[in-house]
Design a protein around this nucleic acid. Structure first.
Lengths: 257, 257
DNA sequence: TTGCGACTCCTTACAACGTAAAGTAACCTT
DNA sequence: AAGGTTACTTTACGTTGTAAGGAGTCGCAA
């Protein structure tokens, strides 16, 4: 199931995200941790073990119990919000437009693609959560800034920003999750897919006749780059192809009106 | 976190999905349940209470304990697979091409959009799971069949199928989850968004200066249809706009090569 | 008719989870 | 030195998926 981010107390979440913590008069023992340290630890755990990280695991990595985290962070949902936004800080906040908006959007998309590869757990945080944190804003702002250069009105651009965003995310997810599925059992991509296809074909031998169009799509393949694993080939090719079509559409909108 | 479908024993999953259960010589008490009944009950629970349904809840709805389900279904993951595929049986498996592929794809997308609205929990099942079940296949086959009519080669169509699919899903998710978030606390969309924007603006008053491009996009609005809730307006507009651009791109590819 | 084995379904139990509650000890302020 | 505030721990509760074992039911062979 999806982690619903942005579900906690909105004020507290947003204060944490925007670091609006008022430095108050302090008393009592010195804090041994910090929100930053916790978020970093949580990201490290998630990078290693997937989104199914536990408060106990994060605490342990910091030499504390799970409950110690609750001094700094209201709950797991809010921690996920913070992780999400923090991770996005890795991404560029602006793109050169020298070689045109199309090249810039492509760079944005590639950066996102690689980012999702580095932090696959991000893909498991609800895709449609409201944009809450500063870095999240910055990432979308970067895309918006590029697209504004097309001269299209905001009304049209909103749909385009969404489309590009959804597409990149969806495409990245296809790789990330297949990779995770294979990785969990230690199988390589090929074996994982092979095991499933084999069973499927055994049980439903005339699969190709039942779904002729899919069969048609599947069999028109580029020569495979032996450097990359099976799945990567497919995914990268589809990513490039889909993005190309999408940007062709944007170009059409720019040229026409 | 995402429910990883397709994680269980592949043979057993696929046998269940394709109903390849061999009718064996039976002995022992008559089964009081069936896989179908369980899947139906699980879908009903998920429709009502979201993807965070429990085996106990499904059992209870059928007047059994949670463990009774394990006689029919190997585990929760496999049950989710079955629910997913069963739900997709609602969707059309082919589309008229009389008015052209573009209109047909639009119908496909609209059907998916409405489908996701009916069963928002489907969006919480991993978007990128391998296509496993017959109805899932049929849905993609339907889209593929339409797009094949463009005359584009399979190589190009694969990226397009992916793009359309990701886009529709992503767009639907934006509505579904905001709806769920509001619904959970009983807030209407407007209030929910308003609460967040208000806090954000209070904490970060010059938000609009920090993210001028987003501000620009946000403020170029169509007149709002007072019939629909706030969020619906936005989402539907972006959905239509994004799809239009995407299909323009496909049209470009058809015209050019 | 009488078992026997297969089968459904239940009870019990366990480990893992998020987190509430309450306690202990460290530290600043007065 | 006292008192209040804070960091962190321990313990505990309610939920979750599901393993293990047992009770009862039925078909079939002897």
């Amino acid at each position: 199931m999806v982690v619903y981010a942005g579900q906690g107390d909105p004020r507290r979440s947003i204060e944490l995200l925007w670091r609006a913590s008022v430095a108050e008069k302090r008393s009592g023992p010195k804090p041994g941790l910090s929100v930053d340290a916790i978020v970093d630890a949580a990201i490290a755990v998630a990078d290693e073990h997937g989104m199914a990280f536990s408060m106990r695991a994060v605490g342990e990595r910091l030499g504390r119990t799970a409950m110690a985290l609750y001094t700094y962070v209201p709950g797991k949902n809010e921690l996920v919000d913070l992780m999400y936004d923090r991770a996005m800080a890795e991404l560029p906040t602006s793109y050169e437009l020298d070689d045109g908006w199309r090249a810039a959007v492509t760079r944005w998309a590639n950066d996102m693609w690689e980012f999702y590869g580095r932090h696959p757990w991000v893909l498991q945080v609800s895709q449609a959560r409201p944009v809450l944190g500063p870095h999240e804003f910055a990432v979308i702002e970067a895309l918006a800034a590029i697209l504004v250069a097309t001269g299209l009105p905001g009304r049209e651009l909103r749909g385009i920003v969404g489309a590009v965003n959804y597409f990149v995310r969806g495409a990245a997810q296809t790789v990330a999750e297949a990779r995770a599925a294979g990785g969990a059992t230690g199988e390589a991509d090929e074996e994982w897919w092979y095991a499933r296809s084999a069973v499927l074909l055994e049980i439903e031998p005339d699969l190709e006749k039942k779904f002729p169009m899919l069969h048609l799509l599947e069999n028109d393949r580029e020569p495979i780059d032996p450097e990359l694993p099976y799945l990567e080939n497919d995914a990268v090719e589809n990513f490039r192809g889909g993005l190309k079509v999408l940007l062709d559409g944007v170009e059409g909108a720019v040229a026409k009106p």
